[in-house]
Computed example of a mutant assay.
Amino acid sequence: MSSPPESGPTLDAASPLPTELPAADEPAKVPLAIEDWATVIIMGLLACITFANVLVRYFTSSSFAWTEEFSVFLMILLAMVAGSAAVARDRHIRIEYFSESGSMARRKRLSQFGAVLVAALFLLIAALSVRMVWDDYRFDETSPGIGVPAWWYSIWLPIVSTAIALRAIGLFIRRGRRDDRGAE
């Protein structure tokens, strides 16, 4: 009996690794490990807080009042930090039909245009959120669940938005340098 012709890579455990593995992160002046470790810490805090609340609810039929509010804050912060990592790694959402087609010069321009737009958006968010933080502080706003000052939560929006904008600017610069050297 003859075996069927090979029509692509096999999926069994004994097969060798594919020849094309994903590329490593591009070198950046500010290490990408900052976002990676922040993600690990935030996820660890979320897991610990949620687990503690489950245990308390199971054994006492009550819960920690602060866990829901703090968990929501951590999830929002996690999304922002992950957004920063996505921008730094050039993994943000795009329509690949447009971004991956055409000449290298067109791809470079589209990549840089996207980075400029991301930077502009997050600089605008950072600038506007500074006003929000100031208002939270000035008017002594408190959080609805546990009554801590609201600016404790809102102060992170301009900080992380600025970080995302800086990562986008860095991506813009790296894309310009990479393609000028003839890489890819």
Rank of each mutant, 00 (worst) to 15 (best):
F73M: 09
I41V: 04
S63H: 11
S61P: 00
L74G: 00
E68D: 15
P27K: 15
S71T: 02
I93G: 01
A86S: 13
I95R: 05
M43C: 08
L110I: 12
A105Y: 10
F64G: 03
G83C: 11
E100T: 07
H92D: 11
A52E: 03
T39I: 11
F64S: 03
V72C: 03
R94M: 07
S99A: 14
R107A: 02
L46S: 00
E68K: 13
A47Q: 03
G44H: 04
L55Q: 06
S84D: 09
L32S: 10
P31M: 15
A79R: 01
W37L: 10
V72W: 08
V30K: 13
P31Y: 15
W37N: 07
P27I: 14
W37S: 02
I49M: 13
Y97F: 11
W37P: 00
Y97S: 11
E35I: 04
C48I: 13
I42D: 01
E35A: 11
I76K: 02
I42F: 03
A47Y: 05
S84G: 14
K108Y: 09
A88I: 09
I93C: 02
H92I: 04
A38T: 01
S103W: 10
E100S: 11
I49T: 03
I41N: 00
A47H: 02
T67Y: 09
I42R: 00
L74F: 02
I34D: 11
I34F: 14
F51A: 09
H92V: 06
V81L: 02
L77M: 05
D90K: 15
I49D: 03
